[in-house]
Computed example of a mutant assay.
Amino acid sequence: MVEIGQFNNLTIDKMVDFGAFLDGGRYGRILLPKRYLPEGKQVGDTLRVFIYLDSEDQLIATTETPKLVRGACAWLKVTDVNRYGAFLDWGLPKDLLVPFKEQNKPMELGRSYVVTLYLDNQERLVASSRLSRHIPETSRYLKPQQPVSLLVCGRTELGYKVVIEGNCLGLLFRDDAFKPLKYGQQVKGYIKDVRPDGKVNVSLQLPPIQQREQLTEQIIANLRANGGHSPLTDSSAPDDIYHVYSVSKKTYKKAIGQLYKERRIDIGEDGITLLDNAR
């Protein structure tokens, strides 16, 4: 069955001068324009295509990858605002509409917003910045300490609202975010806990003991992969440390302090060095 707003594996049903028609099941034949048709393809071959609606609201296929698929979230820029709503650049020829009623606050030309993609009651693909209308705020599948990708979608008095793995809303408490975050920023994180009501809290770091154990082995692996030396010390910039290990400077300092006590590394002014007994 064809899923609009998603990638589908469809079979070429007919070749024409301007492309190919794909078997869309109950939707009939769906055009794949010639510019997207890979060379050498024939009737009966299967292609992975994204299905959306063109400017005439007809189903059309493309082998290009949009910035957003149905049910997920992305940070997209407004290219136009008119009487119908705001239009976003999502990487396809036809910009994506956000109706006024689906805007959390009035969207402005040139600004970017976190939105989700859904099918309206007329089977049209539209976007919404009112995420809680379309994205669940609970999960039965996420587990404590599970690594996840996070997209910052708002702020509260408690901290930051985030989209977890593109399909669930959660909360990152201010105390669990060791650095300022920006709206639309993507970061790595971990599930902190899942409340009895199913709502999810996240953290940018694992619990201290487990994180330190994991981090020390990451540092050793990094040293081995780089000739036994790293320029990152306890005086390095926090952003440089986070770029490599996704942890705070405080956590990194404790980890290399532990490795130094265990005589696995030496700490110098120009960085840390792996000792022979740890190679």
Rank of each mutant, 00 (worst) to 15 (best):
M15D: 03
V16Q: 09
V16T: 14
D17F: 06
D17Y: 02
F18L: 13
G19N: 05
G19Y: 10
G19A: 02
A20M: 09
F21I: 07
F21C: 01
F21D: 09
G24I: 02
G24P: 15
G25Q: 02
R26C: 00
Y27G: 00
Y27S: 03
Y27K: 09
G28Y: 09
R29F: 04
R29A: 12
I30F: 04
L32A: 01
P33T: 03
P33K: 04
K34C: 08
R35Y: 05
L37R: 11
P38V: 05
E39M: 13
E39S: 10
G40Y: 12
G40S: 06
K41A: 15
V43Q: 14
G44C: 10
G44N: 08
G44P: 15
L47F: 00
L47V: 01
R48V: 10
R48Y: 09
V49W: 12
I51A: 01
Y52L: 04
S55I: 14
E56C: 10
Q58G: 14
Q58Y: 05
I60Q: 11
A61F: 04
A61P: 13
T65L: 12
K67E: 12
L68S: 01
L68F: 06
V69A: 14
R70W: 01
R70H: 10
G71N: 04
G71Q: 14
A72K: 13
A72Q: 14
C73A: 13
C73L: 09
C73N: 10
A74Q: 08
A74C: 08
W75G: 04
L76D: 07
L76V: 15
L76M: 15
L76R: 15
K77H: 14
K77A: 11
V78F: 00
V78I: 00
T79V: 15
T79W: 13
D80W: 06
D80F: 08
D80G: 09
V81T: 10
N82P: 11
N82R: 07
Y84M: 11
Y84H: 07
Y84R: 13
G85H: 06
G85R: 07
G85P: 01
A86S: 02
A86F: 08
A86M: 03
A86V: 01
L88K: 05
L88Q: 07
D89M: 13
D89C: 04
D89F: 00
D89R: 13
W90K: 08
G91M: 04
K94E: 15
D95Q: 06
L97A: 05
V98S: 04
P99G: 04
P99R: 01
P99F: 03
F100S: 09
F100Y: 13
F100T: 10
